[in-house]
């Protein structure tokens, strides 16, 4: 299952606190990302708002509960809810996370890291194939931010993702903030990470803020994109070219205008970076 990269432009996460303002003002964003689980209920305000927004701009569905790496069976109830939402919204892309999060039927409601082993790779690859067949769509998986690694790991995260994409055709949602957070928490070179990701697999980028908690960085999504993440975003643009980019803000959510301003800043940086080679050639 392959796919050419969509040219979606610059988007923001659609959050409950911004529903009314988003509909009233129709802010200058090219697309929105909706957390799938928040819109799966058959009625109520969230799905009604999402349907209205969908008439205005493309929507990407971004899940947090697929648990693609869990050893138990995939949750058919979840897949059915996701399939129904996909049919209702017709999203431009469908994504979730490279993680696990269920154990013996229990949901842990977290994006837990996997050991990067051949066993885990084979397991996740078979599950990605199942999900892509069930949905009839390509799945994109996001690199998680992590605080713990496993002694049994034999592959780096970027090697794991690259091979997973090669085996299944799944896309990669490259979260630039998560690369930075994990690089700091584990001491690897984020540029080596970027170099290890196959460009053709990258479907879109995430940008977000994090907290420095002294001995580690915490992926908090509670403030503006910090300078080191903007710097890594520039590197990612040089490596991957024009990629749809999404600003996430999930806690201590500011006014809509502030989130939109972050997205416009990403667009400006992209324009600057992508025009840089031409400028250099001209001079």
């Amino acid at each position: 299952m392959t796919s050419t990269r969509l040219d979606l432009g610059h988007g923001i996460g659609l959050r409950t606190t911004h529903f009314a303002q988003f509909l009233a003002e129709r802010p200058p964003v090219d697309w929105v990302e909706a957390v799938s689980e928040n819109f799966m209920a058959p009625g109520g305000r969230p799905i009604a708002v999402l349907e209205k927004v969908r008439r205005e701009v493309p929507v990407v569905l971004h899940g947090v509960s697929l648990a693609i790496g869990s050893v138990g069976p995939l949750d058919e109830r979840y897949l059915a809810s996701l399939a129904a939402l996909v049919e209702r919204i017709e999203p431009a892309l469908i994504s979730d996370h490279l993680c696990w999060g269920t154990h013996r039927g229990q949901y842990l409601h977290d994006l837990l890291p996997l050991p990067y082993t051949e066993e885990a790779l084979a397991h996740v690859a078979s599950r990605v194939a199942q999900v892509q067949e069930r949905l009839g769509r390509r799945l994109l998986l996001e690199n998680p931010s992590a605080y713990v690694a496993f002694k049994d790991s034999t592959l780096t995260e970027w090697e794991f993702l690259a091979e997973l994409s090669r085996r299944t055709g799944c896309g990669i949602l490259l979260d630039v903030n998560n690369v930075y957070v994990s690089a700091r928490n584990f001491g690897f070179d984020p540029l080596e990470y970027l170099r290890g990701i196959p460009a053709e697999a990258v479907g879109y980028f995430h940008l977000a803020g994090h907290q420095d908690r002294g001995t580690y960085l915490f992926d908090s999504h509670d403030h503006a994109v910090p300078a080191p993440v903007w710097a890594l975003y520039r590197e990612a643009l040089r490596r991957f070219g024009r990629v749809p980019t999404l600003v996430e803000w999930d806690d201590a959510i500011p006014p809509l205008s502030e989130v939109v301003a972050e997205s416009r800043r990403a667009a400006a940086i992209e324009a600057e970076e992508l025009s840089a080679p031409a400028r250099r050639l001209a001079s």
Binding site: D110, L112, Y147, V148, A149, F150, K151, N185, G187, T215, Y216, F218
Partner: peptide, 16 residues
């Protein structure tokens, strides 16, 4: 789990 002197494995798991 792998830890470091600054952040041992138990402290890393405790974050989760």
């Amino acid at each position: 789990f792998a830890g470091t002197p600054e952040l041992p494995a138990a402290a890393r798991v405790a974050i989760y």
